[in-house]
Design a protein around this nucleic acid. Structure first.
Lengths: 212, 212
DNA sequence: AACTTAATGGGTCTTTCGGCCCATTCAGAT
DNA sequence: ATCTGAATGGGCCGAAAGACCCATTAAGTT
């Protein structure tokens, strides 16, 4: 249902950009559509990509994160991240139009939760921190939500390399026929028509993991 | 052939840790086996995990990266990373036993190259920067190396969801028979016996991407 | 009480897949 | 000049997979 959240990141450290891109892209509901290393390029990137959420580092050479976002007319929901736990910028960040203020000391799942929250219209400055709990689990797409528990078990077998009907049946203690039935349902729900494609889709949708 | 390089990372920013872990783990030849947020824990982690390479941030609260590594007896090849391009620490880093000194402004592929280089015994302080070029491509495992170009094409079709013999044949402009031949070779080389397992292995070994 | 859905199972039929035999061509290495 | 390996192709056959019908049970919902 929920479309994937398109994110643009601004940070002067390329390593941080690459790392965040990998981390966020690995989640089924978040997609990094652009990165910039300088506040000066942010404006153009936002216009070009039209992201749902902006992730901006305060500390940047030339144009700081805060002044960069304050000069964007149609600012998408924006999160400010900072190296230091410093609250000093928080007030200014809020004035500049940001929706939240985070430390880089947070683990990635919490960042992801914050992204989902602001994408949903939440203003983290005004909210109880506990609202994040509601956004901690990745939102699966409608296709993925339709997959039942037992079907997930079958998919997990597949991505573990247990691919033959017999082996899956042994693994799950059910008959070969039931395995085939589950697979047929999976094919229909994912819009595929064999095991190889099911594996690809399952990984793309993140159905292979039990949620962190 | 080359075993995967086991890496431990020390950085006080959890986000950076999570990001790097994702980024490096996505490479077929590098595996992050441990992370610490504080220099104080580094010693214990290194003893517990016995990594091939250490990746340490200089700036850390309590115990700095440099003092942390200098008190490790059997120091593995170590790279120091820093936020600032500052050369000030470089000399001290070298004395503390580090093999290289990098800025966080580098893109991830270059970090990966540096990791492979030091894992191979190279001392980046003493070497021409061009040595990194030799380590820029991920080292594929022996199984993966055996895969020929055309077989890779077939694998790429599979991970794109083109899984039936007919579709692959159309995609690659060859006969169905040739597709089956290539698949048979792939199965043998990867030690699998159907397309679904081949997809899983291809993704695990990183054979699905064209190298960055 | 009636309804839905998940999970389990059966049967049948056609298509596809994978294993095993083979040949030809061409490029590069010895 | 020979040899090897990659890439292309053929045929054959048994086993597996996928598509299509179906039923039963148990757990929730309304």
């Amino acid at each position: 249902m929920t479309d994937t959240i398109r994110v643009v990141i601004a940070d002067d450290h390329q390593l941080m950009l690459d790392g965040l891109r990998q981390g966020l892209d690995s989640l089924p509901d978040i997609q990094v559509v652009g990165t910039v290393v300088d506040g000066a390029e942010l404006h153009a990137e936002v216009q070009a990509k039209g992201p749902d959420v902006l992730l901006v580092d305060v500390e940047m050479p030339k144009v700081t994160g805060l002044s960069a976002i304050s000069r964007i007319d149609d600012l998408p929901p924006t999160l400010i991240v900072t190296m230091h736990a410093a609250e000093e910028y928080a007030a200014t960040a809020r004035e500049a139009g940001a929706r939240g203020f985070l430390s880089k000391g947070l683990p990635l799942p919490q960042l992801a939760a914050a992204i989902r929250a602001v994408a949903d219209g939440v203003d983290l400055f005004e909210s109880d921190p506990r609202v994040l709990d509601a956004y901690s689990a990745p939102q699966l797409s409608s296709r993925a939500e339709a997959i039942t528990g037992r079907e997930r078990d079958v998919l997990r077998c597949l991505v573990q390399g247990i691919s033959s009907t017999d082996d899956i049946a042994d693994e799950l203690y059910i008959s070969q026929k039931t395995v085939k039935n589950h697979l047929a349902s999976i094919y229909e729900k994912l819009g595929v028509n064999d095991r190889a494609q099911a594996v690809v889709e399952a990984m793309k949708l993140g159905l292979d993991r039990d949620w962190d």
